[in-house]
Design a protein around this nucleic acid. Sequence first.
DNA 1: CTGTTTGCAAAGTCTTTGCACAATC
DNA 2: GATTGTGCAAAGACTTTGCAAACAG
Lengths: 160, 160
Amino acid sequence: MITLSLLTDELGRIETSLHQAGLKLTPQRKATVKTLLKNHTRHLSAEELFALVKEDEPEIGLATVYRTVEVLAELKIVNRVTFEDGMTRYDLRTSDNGHFHHHLLCQKCGKVQEIHEDLLTDVEKQVWQRFGFKVLDHRLTLMGICQDCLAKEQQAKDDL
Amino acid sequence: MITLSLLTDELGRIETSLHQAGLKLTPQRKATVKTLLKNHTRHLSAEELFALVKEDEPEIGLATVYRTVEVLAELKIVNRVTFEDGMTRYDLRTSDNGHFHHHLLCQKCGKVQEIHEDLLTDVEKQVWQRFGFKVLDHRLTLMGICQDCLAKEQQAKDDL
DNA sequence: CTGTTTGCAAAGTCTTTGCACAATC
DNA sequence: GATTGTGCAAAGACTTTGCAAACAG
């Protein structure tokens, strides 16, 4: 969950980044960032983001949303992520997840869970030793069944 | 490298899969599969594949290439892979790489190298223990600098 | 005020689909 | 010969761009 004061903090931080780049915090951008903050676990696509931002800012156009996420990606405020559905999704980097994180994609309910633990240190060391490849960044998506869906499956079995 | 006899073997195996599904090995499909076999390390996009197949089969249409990879994906003969550029690429599963493999994407030269080692056993165990998430499949892309590019960089330094 | 930003609509990519003709088994 | 497959062109999904009007700093 995100608290109101945290939201204000992040917004301020982002406004500063924009201003340093000579850009403006327009109502449209503000609404877009707020929506991303409020849904920071959801990995929204452009269309989804557009639909949500419209609740706050009904006049906004889809093109503006695309342009805003473009700007935010350049300023490293959001990450662009592409899952196997080929659709680009956006994912805020809050102060506590500055480094890239991993995704657990549930194949039952479609939920995406982030994990911030650094699980790959060892893997990256191996890749360096065995292939001479110097790792700078990584994308890891694990597909499977989440805890909730497993519990539901178990429940269904018990009910028989 | 792929030898001629290996290519014939794989083609035969694929023809059988097609026939089992009531599908035909047309010249277009044959040319597409051959191109995929010959370039099995390259992770071709539809357009790239189309351009290459055209050398063998100049009459082929782009739509046919799309339909062919669709069929091949359903038969688990190719994997669909999406990198961060958002473009879908296709990647043959030969008999020796039936399980899903990882990718090393060089940010200097754009080359994609596959690694077949199973590096994630430990990671998947941790995810199960810590999050109760049951992993069924995974996608891992490591971005960085490949051995060749590192060597070139080193060379450039030495030349100064 | 001045350069940015916006909304709209038009254009661009990549991919899928409809249909009449052609080819395979 | 019946069914599956093909090429083309048209349509679809997602994203980008051009432009005049609106706005933030």
